[in-house]
Nucleic acid binder design. Structure first.
Lengths: 224, 224
DNA sequence: TAGATTGTTAATCGATTAACAATC
DNA sequence: TAGATTGTTAATCGATTAACAATC
């Protein structure tokens, strides 16, 4: 299953709705109209109503939507009424940064395990966890109830790491390596590649500067 | 300018084309048909021809596209015939991980500067750079020719960091904090939020497991 | 010339949005 | 009842794709 393909219109917007709604809750508003919410998230009001209807959320004509109900249902849809323990494979700089990062645990994704193939790293304490060998993954998934794996290995190690996660029963993988991985059909993979993100930025930068001379330094040869 | 809106169909696929083409080069193939390339990148052949035509690349009827030419032109379109020096704002775990990460420099985005507001971090050596105060950003952008800024501060520091980059003349920002930032119209921002990526994974995980009992641990209260 | 493949037109598909009857 | 706002239909828009004439 390829997430990007299946995703449909709604899912990517749910976190945005949630962020705006949380602010409204802190202000104490009880209800909100699709019209006003649409302004906050910069979408069309009809799109907002569509999205909410598709989640099975209904409002009250003439009044709007109950904000707390909205938040509850969106959290439900996103699976945020659960805690999803995460196992990070790869205890390099990025893996260790993730294990130290509160932003994941705060949103229901605590890093409960950190593994690596490098014997030199095994046993090292990082944040709240200790680096363990990759061979332990299967046991860790079972005992910790981990549902999600994050790959922060080198490109070379990515496939092997993914295989280990899949063998351990993990069905959701966030791949932070530059390497595309191959997994069975029933496993979901999302890939975030920072260099690709920068490429996209530079694409627009270049396009914007097109006529003017670019501020980048010419690179020797590319296509050889 | 919102990148997601403007992006059009092509840009997000260019890195994929490039990856497949690089492999073909290493195998020594001289040309490729849109049909074959479309299989490699899992797209429709007409879409491939569309994309290439939109970049001004033409092939030869009956033969296909010259692979080296293709690679050169796609690199050109992505701005990869330039080196884009990057300044990272925020020398926490993630910022330091980026400064140590070869994957960016390898693809033309060397981290040339790392700054932080925390006096305790100033002067620390990280990878090839030394942490400097945020106040130096403007001078650094000029002297290093930095075109892209990456935010790895805390949520609280994100807006201030973005303001400093914008004031220094940076027009492309990759925001890795969970905080949305406000910038002038002429500045491009891309946001990558790992917790959001995990949310999307868990959304599908949950949907897949819908009927069956979820494997996540129930969370106490969400909507209060 | 016969076969292959491009470049592009027209058809299709899916998502967004305007509009409005239903109804609080 | 009058005003507001939902829920949904039909119109619109934009991207993908099939199909095919052009041409190597």
């Amino acid at each position: 299953m390829s997430l990007q393909d299946v995703s449909g219109p709604t899912i990517g917007r749910l976190p945005r709705y949630l962020a705006s709604l949380m602010e409204l809750i802190s202000v104490g508003e009880p209800t909100i109209s699709s019209d006003r919410l649409s302004e906050l998230v910069d979408l069309n009001a009809a799109t907002v109503r569509r999205d909410l209807a598709s989640l099975g959320i209904s409002g009250t004509r003439g009044v709007g939507y109950d904000i707390k109900h909205l938040v509850f249902e969106i959290n439900q849809a996103l699976g945020l009424n659960h805690v999803w323990p995460v196992i990070v494979v790869g205890a390099g700089n990025l893996g260790r940064a993730l294990a130290n990062y509160d932003g994941l645990a705060d949103r229901g994704f605590p890093v409960c395990g950190l593994v690596d193939v490098d014997p030199a790293l095994i046993g090292k304490a990082v944040g709240a966890v200790t680096v363990r060998p990759v061979d332990d993954v299967s046991e860790m998934v079972d005992s910790l109830g981990a549902a999600v794996g994050v790959l922060t290995t080198s490109s070379e190690g990515a496939q092997e790491a993914a295989d280990a996660l899949v063998a351990a029963g993990v069905r959701s993988i966030l791949n932070l390596t530059p390497q595309a991985i191959v997994v069975p059909e029933e496993v979901d993979v999302r890939r975030v590649d920072l260099a690709t993100e920068l490429q996209i930025l530079s694409f627009y930068h270049q396009r914007r500067a097109s006529a003017a001379s670019g501020s980048g330094v010419p690179l020797s040869e590319v296509a050889s």
